Computed example of a mutant assay.
Amino acid sequence: MRPATAIIGGYRPADSGWHRLGVGWKYLLVLVLIVTPLVLQQPWVTAGVLLLTVACLAGTGLPVRLTLALPWSLLVLLVVLAGFQLAIGQPGSAFVVPGNVLQAVLAARLILCTTPASVLVDALVRAADRVPFLDGERFGLAVGIMLRSIPFLTGAFYDVRDAARARGLERHWIARLSPVVVRAVGFAQATGQALAARGLGEGRPASPPRGQIPRPERPGGG
């Protein structure tokens, strides 16, 4: 599994009930699975919802390495969270806090592994169009750019890390960080140019004062 998809996973076609379920129902069920343990903050709730989520992932029919495998970075984060809660004298939270983080990651895989990204973005655009003062197309564009940026930046970090390790520079943070920053800036510039070429991302032209008709510019700027 690529580092970019090691945490949240990636879409895999199949014929399970989760794959056939409507995207709106998927969003709703995943939201319930994530919010319930966050609100109740009880160990038995976190454990129960976590087991239910694992059962749902098993029901997708997808490989275990895609649905349940955890990268070492996430495992380290969970251990640090549990250790911190123990250090401040909260043994109950030592399970609830990292358990809720793990639950959120696994619940996200339920929808991301069973639904194409284009379908997810289209559903968000339709929902955003119903919200006053919110441009659904621009909102969907922002989400699409985010979904494209995360794998790119994550992959850039791992590529630079591997290249630095091959040159014996794995402990030189400047040698590891600088190429990632350069790639990120280049990606942002390329994205901005692509948006500008399509007339997106620019401010709307100011409207003339009421009662005045805008005068067309003469050829040659005169």
Rank of each mutant, 00 (worst) to 15 (best):
175 A>S: 14
81 L>I: 15
5 T>Y: 08
17 G>R: 07
5 T>V: 05
30 V>T: 06
74 L>G: 13
33 L>T: 09
147 L>D: 03
21 L>A: 09
83 G>V: 14
180 V>M: 08
155 G>F: 00
122 D>M: 13
179 P>D: 02
112 L>Y: 13
147 L>G: 01
24 G>H: 05
74 L>A: 09
211 G>W: 10
69 A>G: 03
48 G>V: 09
171 R>W: 07
23 V>P: 11
2 R>C: 02
197 A>H: 02
94 A>C: 01
113 C>T: 05
186 G>C: 07
106 L>K: 12
58 A>L: 10
184 A>H: 08
106 L>N: 03
153 L>F: 00
75 L>Y: 01
27 Y>K: 01
144 G>T: 00
169 L>M: 11
92 G>M: 12
90 Q>V: 12
49 V>H: 01
9 G>L: 03
46 T>S: 13
59 G>Y: 08
181 V>Y: 12
138 R>A: 13
104 A>W: 08
166 A>Q: 15
54 V>W: 15
192 G>I: 04
82 A>K: 06
9 G>N: 04
26 K>V: 02
24 G>V: 04
26 K>E: 00
104 A>S: 15
32 V>K: 10
57 L>Q: 08
163 A>P: 13
183 R>F: 00
144 G>R: 02
146 M>P: 06
150 I>F: 01
78 L>C: 05
214 P>E: 13
108 A>K: 05
36 T>Q: 04
177 L>Q: 11
144 G>I: 08
154 T>W: 07
23 V>D: 11
41 Q>F: 06
117 A>Q: 08
75 L>A: 02
110 L>G: 11
113 C>H: 03
91 P>F: 15
135 D>A: 02
188 A>F: 01
198 R>E: 13
159 D>I: 11
198 R>K: 12
76 V>Q: 04
15 D>L: 15
38 L>H: 02
159 D>C: 02
103 Q>E: 03
42 Q>W: 14
124 L>V: 09
110 L>T: 10
50 L>A: 15
35 V>I: 14
173 W>Y: 14
176 R>G: 04
150 I>T: 01
129 D>V: 07
78 L>F: 01
24 G>S: 05
60 T>M: 09
10 G>S: 03
134 L>P: 11
92 G>H: 07
102 L>P: 09
9 G>R: 02
176 R>F: 05
177 L>G: 04
54 V>F: 14
214 P>S: 09
81 L>W: 07
218 R>P: 06
157 F>C: 06
122 D>V: 02
108 A>W: 05
130 R>G: 06
168 G>M: 13
13 P>C: 05
106 L>H: 04
117 A>K: 01
